[in-house]
Amino acid sequence: MLALIQTLVLALDIYWWILIGSAIFSWLYAFNVVNSRNQFVGAIGSFLFKATEPVLAPIRRILPDLGGIDISPIIVLLLIFFLRQFILTTIAPILLS
């Protein structure tokens, strides 16, 4: 059971970093810092978009329009933090005792 909990926490940690990478990449792309015509850059952007958009899109529909500010990644990061802490402090001690 410990291996399952650790794997789940690792998956949440990896997705945490993918979300941060996606946010940073979107800023770099928006400010034209990265070359959008580069095939490697396009592949990274496509991966990050496809990995994060299924989670971010429903949250964007719920949130009110804040102009050009997208706070949906912050909401997801908070949810991941809560879920990770809930698993480690509540579920893990119950399952491992």
Rank of each mutant, 00 (worst) to 15 (best):
Ile44Met: 14
Gly45Leu: 04
Gly45Trp: 03
Gly45Ile: 01
Gly45His: 07
Ser46Met: 15
Ser46Asp: 15
Ser46Pro: 05
Ser46Glu: 14
Phe47Asp: 01
Phe47Ile: 01
Phe47Leu: 14
Phe47Gln: 02
Phe47His: 03
Phe49Trp: 15
Phe49Gln: 14
Phe49Met: 14
Phe49Asp: 10
Lys50Gln: 15
Lys50Ser: 11
Ala51Arg: 07
Ala51Cys: 08
Ala51Val: 03
Ala51Met: 13
Ala51Tyr: 06
Ala51Thr: 01
Glu53Pro: 01
Glu53Ile: 00
Glu53Arg: 10
Glu53Asn: 13
Glu53Asp: 14
Pro54Met: 12
Pro54Ile: 10
Val55Ile: 15
Val55Asn: 02
Val55Pro: 05
Val55Cys: 13
Ala57Leu: 15
Ala57Pro: 01
Pro58Phe: 13
Pro58His: 11
Pro58Cys: 13
Ile59Met: 14
Ile59Tyr: 10
Arg60Asn: 07
Arg60Ile: 06
Arg60Tyr: 08
Arg60Met: 11
Arg61Pro: 00
Arg61Leu: 10
Ile62Glu: 00
Ile62Met: 12
Leu63Ser: 03
Leu63Arg: 02
Leu63Tyr: 02
Pro64Val: 12
Pro64Ala: 13
Asp65Tyr: 12
Asp65Lys: 13
Asp65Ala: 13
Asp65Ile: 03
Asp65Thr: 01
Leu66Ala: 11
Leu66His: 02
Leu66Tyr: 09
Gly67Pro: 06
Gly67Trp: 08
Gly67Ala: 08
Gly68Pro: 02
Gly68Tyr: 10
Gly68Ile: 02
Gly68Asp: 01
Ile69Asn: 00
Ile69Gln: 00
Ile69His: 00
Asp70Met: 12
Ile71Trp: 04
Ser72His: 09
Ser72Tyr: 06
Ser72Glu: 05
Ser72Arg: 07
Ser72Asp: 05
Pro73Tyr: 04
Pro73Met: 06
Pro73Asp: 07
Pro73Gly: 08
Pro73Asn: 10
Pro73Val: 08
